[in-house]
């Protein structure tokens, strides 16, 4: 089981520019991010029934970090803050 943050929902467009997250073209402030990286990811639209998840610790290279679009049926629960 993995613990990741949902950053974009179905139908939204997600993108990384020099490590900064953009959803639907809008910059997303992410104060919780540790070790910001320089990830570059071209815009991509999230499929129906899917969400986009990323971990908060982004110090590793994009290749090594495990994040991305997943089917909603893989989500087993949320975290109570």
């Amino acid at each position: 089981m993995l613990l990741k943050r949902v950053v974009a929902l179905q139908g939204e467009t997600v993108e990384f520019r020099k490590g900064v997250l953009y959803v639907n073209g809008n910059l997303i402030e992410e104060p919780y991010v540790r070790h910001r990286s320089d990830w570059q990811l071209p815009p991509r639209m999230i499929e129906l029934g899917h969400v986009y998840v990323v971990g908060d610790n982004r110090g590793t290279s994009m290749d090594r970090h495990r994040f991305g679009e997943i089917n909603m049926n893989r989500v087993v629960g949320g975290v109570i803050p």
Binding site: L41, V53, M62, R66, F67, G68, E69, I70, N71, R74
Partner: peptide, 8 residues
Amino acid sequence: SVVEFMKK
């Protein structure tokens, strides 16, 4: 088998 379920 590593299950690849995340698409970057």
